[in-house]
Structure formats: structure tokens, C-alpha cells
């Protein structure tokens, strides 16, 4: 083992970090759209759709991300040939973004739903009592409070997704880990490559955690002295 190789590998691997982060950002963005939609469907128990939402959430919670990745990778092109769209040559990044987006969507939906249900009934009534309509009540009173409450879980989920991106290479994505594998092939120093990757992942997670805890403080400042940091 040659520890100094880590210094050599570090710049080579970190130059692919943006791909990893791109996957994460795309997944979170897709996840937010899906998550809010599904949460609303669940909260308002929209007939028929509520059923579908339940099955969707149960499936995403019930299967490994790796299997989901393979299902999308092999299933989506097959599905799209039905409508004569050929994605067999599409960038695997696309499949990864969709898979991780769907996965984020399911967990975000449950997080948002829990938080919305956690907002006291009195807040809704106060909003109505001053003459707000349902949309104003939802957008101005309930959602801001719910999002602040949901934030810690949301942050955990995002960090979980970041770690899950380490599996994207299995369908041939050239992210950090993908690049790591080519380095292994050329240098035959697998251990050092994985050590470097671990350091980078750990660094990114620490940064994210720091950022999230700062934003959490800001978001939840209205909880005042009651929300003393217990860490």
C-alpha cells in the first residue's frame, strides 16, 4: 500500500465530484416536485391517486436503490419504445437522475406529509379567521411551518441520497466512483482509490451537515429558545 498515492489520486477524483453533485441536485429537485405532489395527494386523500401514491411509496421504501436503478435502466427504455422514443443510447446519468429523483420523491412525500400533519389545527383556524382562502392558508401559514419542521429529516434524506450516488457507477455513470474504477484499472491500486473516495465523500457529507445545521437554525429561528441545540 502506498499512502502517498492518495495525494496523487485526490485531484483526479475530485474533478469528477461535480457529476456526483449534479446527480444529487437533480434528484433533490425531481424529488421535491414529486414529494410535494404526492404529499398533497395523501393529505387531501385524492381518490384513486391516494391509492397509487401509497403503492409508490411502499415500493420505493420496500426495494433497494440498486434494484430501482436496474429497473429504470432496463425498464424505462423498454417502456418508451412503446411510444417510439429511443433512449437506449441516452446518457446513463439520465436514468440515475430519474431513479434517485423517484426515490427522493417517496421519502420527501412522507416527510412533508408528517410535517404538515404536525402543524397545529389552530394555525389553520387562525388563518381562516382572518379571511384567508385555502391556498393562502396553505402557502403562507402551513407550508412554511411544515418545511421548517421537516428540514432535519429532509437533510438526512439528502445526505442518504448522496451516499447512494456511490452506486450509480453500476450502470456505467462516469461520476467519482466511475472514474475511480478506471483509475483502478490503470494503476492497480484499488485500496488507495477507495480511501481517496471515502475521504471525499466524508468531506462532502461534513460540509453538507454543517450547511444544513446552519440553515436549520435560520429556518427554525421562530422556535426560539425552545429549540436549544442538544448536540
Amino acid at each position: 500500500m502506498d499512502i502517498t498515492l492518495i495525494i496523487d489520486f485526490f485531484p483526479k477524483l475530485i474533478s469528477y465530484l461535480h457529476i456526483t453533485l449534479l446527480i444529487l441536485v437533480a434528484a433533490v429537485a425531481i424529488g421535491l416536485i414529486i414529494g410535494v405532489t404526492i404529499a398533497l395527494i395523501r393529505i387531501y386523500k385524492v381518490p384513486a391517486f391516494n391509492r397509487l401514491a401509497l403503492i409508490y411509496i411502499s415500493f420505493m421504501r420496500g426495494t433497494p436503490i440498486l434494484i430501482q436503478l436496474f429497473l429504470i435502466y432496463f425498464g424505462l427504455p423498454a417502456l418508451l419504445t412503446l411510444v417510439h422514443i429511443d433512449v437506449s443510447r441516452a446518457n446513463p446519468l439520465l436514468f440515475v437522475a430519474i431513479t434517485y429523483g423517484l426515490s427522493c420523491g417517496a421519502s420527501f412525500a412522507e416527510i412533508i406529509r408528517g410535517a404538515v400533519n404536525g402543524v397545529e389545527r389552530g394555525q389553520t383556524e387562525a388563518a381562516y379567521s382572518i379571511g384567508m382562502n385555502e391556498k393562502q392558508m396553505l402557502v403562507r401559514i402551513i407550508l412554511p411551518q411544515a418545511l421548517a419542521m421537516a428540514f432535519p429529516n429532509f437533510a438526512n434524506s439528502v445526505i442518504g441520497s448522496l451516499k447512494d450516488t456511490s452506486l450509480a457507477f453500476t450502470i456505467g455513470v462516469m461520476d467519482m466512483v466511475g472514474r475511480g474504477n478506471t483509475l483502478i484499472a490503470s494503476s492497480l491500486h484499488a485500496l488507495e482509490v477507495y480511501m481517496t473516495l471515502s475521504i471525499i465523500y466524508y468531506g462532502v457529507v461534513l460540509c453538507l451537515e454543517k450547511g444544513f445545521s446552519l440553515s436549520e437554525k435560520k429556518l427554525q429561528r421562530f422556535e426560539g429558545s425552545l429549540a436549544v441545540d442538544t448536540k
Partner: peptide, 26 residues
């Protein structure tokens, strides 16, 4: 307008914002 037993102030808004909310939005 209504005054509630449990106050029901909008928790994420300051005192000022609570009072302004109805004026601005409604």
C-alpha cells in the same frame, strides 16, 4: 375576526408580521 383561547398566533411570523398578515394578504 376571532381571538382564540390558545392564541393561535402564526408561529413562524413575528408579532409585527402576525398583525400585518391579514392586512397584506386578505
Amino acid at each position: 375576526a376571532m381571538v382564540f383561547q390558545q392564541y393561535n398566533l402564526f408561529k413562524h411570523k413575528t408579532v409585527m408580521e402576525n398583525v400585518m398578515e391579514g392586512l397584506l394578504v386578505v
